[in-house]
Design a protein around this nucleic acid. Sequence first.
RNA 1: CGGGGCGUAGCGCAGCCCGGUUAGCGCGCUUGGUUUGGGACCAAGAAGUCGCCGGUUCAAAUCCGGCCGCCCCGACCA
Length: 579
Amino acid sequence: MRMSQLVGNRYKEQPVEATLPSHAFLLRGGYVRQVANGIYSLLPPAMRVARKIEGILRSEMNRLGGQEVLMPVVLPRELWEESGRYQTVGLELARFTDRTGHAMLLGMTHEESAVALARNEISSYSQLPLMIYQIQTKFRDEPRSRGGLIRVREFTMKDAYSFHASIEDLHRFYRQCCMAYKRIFFRVGLPQIEMVESDTGIMGGLKAHEFTLLTDVGEDTIAVCDTCSYRANMEVATGRVEAFPEDALPLEKVHTPGKKTIEEVAEFLRVPPRKTAKVVFYDSDHAGRLVVALIRGDLDVNDSKVATLIQKWPVPADEARIVSAGAVPGYASPMGLDRDKINVLVDETIAQSGNLVCGANEPDYHCVNFNLARDLPGIETCDIRRVPDGAACALCSGTLNLRRGIEVGNTFQLGVKYTASMGMTFTDAQGKSHHPVMGSYGIGVGRLISSIIEAHHDQYGPKWPMSVAPWQVHINALKLDNPDVREHAERLYQRLAVANIEVLYDDRNASPGVQFADADLLGIPVRLIVSQRNIAAGQIEYKRRSTGETGVVPLEDTVGSVINWIGQELESLNADMGI
RNA sequence: CGGGGCGUAGCGCAGCCCGGUUAGCGCGCUUGGUUUGGGACCAAGAAGUCGCCGGUUCAAAUCCGGCCGCCCCGACCA
């Protein structure tokens, strides 16, 4: 490729809207252009990176036995009604009607489509297991996109769907798929990506993992054990919290005038916040009952965990709602409330503490010496707390640290949620009918591009790993109006092209500073510099983008050296070496 | 959806408060010349419905009203 013809300008001004390095470089390097909020065009350099990533995705999916398909972006409403998600998924599902008035939607994930495809083709256990995958455009009408390609509304995703005759076979395949994901991330230059336990969210199903690049600019919060391999998204992370058992003292009502918050009550009664019990009200659970969550005063409720328990997203209850259930805001307690009309969620930490302070359900009064087993008998406890930074790991003696991360991929053990609701069956060896067990597996291509830049850049631009670099070699020729320089540069360009090397040739007669700055923004791993002084010495100068190493090689050895460098760098990204 | 900010040439901005000639500046672009190892210099150019609609006024980028779009933080979100 000749740079004089390359579509897309580079510029040196820092774009005001870009706060992340990857976002700024994508704009400054001429990789992407925004078309609307969360909607981008990819220019040739980004398109080439995307194609390389897609090639790696294909090879690893094919290695798993996956078969590539292409399902539609535009889907009929009926398909999503079959699974029930037409109702349960919110505004991020873009809906519209076609000219005949038929309700349509833009696919944001393709479990329904995959089942609809497979149920007509699969009827026997002998056809299982099976995985289909596609690399395709998704649209999700996100409430807020951000960070360049990190969170967008339209994006390219590799999504895969597997079907199994048994849960055991799903588990076996799931492990293989996770290994394939590790190989993928290794091959694109991100071996540090972590496998993280996660919420199943709108996918539903049994179990899910995310694959996350830990970085301060990430938007997810991950609990990371400093000792063992436990990693979990905040949504589901659990940890050990110190228990404070005490022998129960008699329950006693105390006057606490005007003291409503945990801080006020704790200070007034001269106890630490951990000796109090906090009540949080949510408007309703799936059955319409008021939700009363009880947690130790020094801890916070984790809404995601509550959502899983009450089967809907928790919305804080307003004061009228709380009062109508017989509770007194600021002095509330589950004690004395009609347990048939409310859903009480009690965090384990309440059972592990004795003699707590809690509300008396009477204005200006609290109770001291609340003990769960005695004062609210017959309640099963659960985990509804946000893991605090520095909590003890539940699996080992280590400490959990909260880190930020970018989720670049995810995997779900779906079970029979979709195959049962959509009526997909197969016949086993005994002639009996079953629903296949399903898994689904996603990786966002654009998010991976941004993540690679976040992990591999300096102040001047990206440093692409060889496996995903838009080109392998960048030729800079200085003083191109000199016939000797031009002739050497053109010849070098031809020789490299003949050797099947991907070359970007800066054939503009631009000043060295401009050429080098542009080369840094394009981040190509090998840079070759043709100049009069190098020609006179019979040599070519090179610079490796990733290491900054510079040197010279004799002119006649150039192609051979380049082939060696490319080979070395690709070999270091070969997953067979690393995993 | 809540809070904050911004919309003037491809990009980054000034001008607006206090209405008044041909709406400026830097980068980029075009032409010519001089240059050339980390974003050169000189000269001459091209490029703008000042986000949109309406109002006030002799006169609106500037004042008023409405709308739209974009960014950041939060909420939300595989």
